[in-house]
Amino acid sequence: MSAATGTPAPRRMTYREACKQAIRAAILADPRVFLMGEDVARYGGCYAVTKGLAAELGEARIRDTPLSENGYVGAGIGAAIAGMRPIVEIMTVNFSLLALDQIVNSAATIPHMSGGQFAVPLVIRMATGAGLQLAAQHSHSLEGWYAHVPGLKILAPATVEDARHMLQPALDDPNPVLIFEHVMLYNREDELEPSITGVDIVSAKIRRPGRDITLVTHGGMLFKTLEAAAVLHEEGIEAEVIDLRVLRPLDMATILGSVARTRRVVIVDEGWKSGSLSAEVAARIADEAFYELDAPIRRVCSREVPIPYSAHLEKAALPQTPAIVAMARGLVKGG
């Protein structure tokens, strides 16, 4: 509390802490909510998100599972149908592939397949992305794949505020919602504004306004893109940065509104280009705003390789700030 105004002062915290507070608050608020996953209780979570929560909330609500991804994700779906509100944590998106069957063949289909008799109010959280030299089985950004699937909602909180507040609306949603937390964000700190007590899970957000070009991105790439916008500003180019936040369904209105003003767009995505989320965003802009554009739609994405271990190769494989700057500058100057 600030004595002068009587309003609570902003609290500085890490993205990790924000995720933890969100889980804690959701479990305290609703007896149907529980979290399960590998090493979430005794170990405290592989990225330490749930550290200390089992001691406080008990091991029935913070539940360690064996290494059985397809098993416990499927159990989460069943529990959701039976009336619980599970949060399932998968260590990383790479291991979620072992549960792909349950997510795609059951969670995403049961509501439709059952003619609307059952909903699947389930939240699945997982880490995504590269940057820690973990090589090709621990570094991929596959959230775009999940965004391919009707029946799922896909969230990518990039800010501390979204990490803190996206979970509750995800739990309130009657559909399976997947939340992707980029590994490089967990240690990021920011102020959390106490007057903001909730966020939506439908809209994209303009994180930096600008008139010359639109940069569309999400998750871990947001900060490299903001960095690029700062560099471009020094050069006299004002880039507008859009954080998608929600990868499915896409908030096209925000994107198209921005593109109508800037007339140029670069999509920045840590996923690969081929058959991707960035391709989808580009196609929709081309479909719906072709005549607004003064330049071709461009993309800065990961190179089409499994992510290598060696630091310099990993760096070369991922989208970096200078590449974003160069692409945007080229579009503005060239057009």
Partner: peptide
């Protein structure tokens, strides 16, 4: 240098990895 500690392979000794996915 592409694999690192978790992904050792060696054709000569029929060493098929190095797998960082449990199981």
């Amino acid at each position: 240098g592409r694999g690192g500690s978790m992904h050792v392979f060696d054709r000569a000794t029929r060493f098929y990895g190095g797998n960082a996915i449990v199981g």
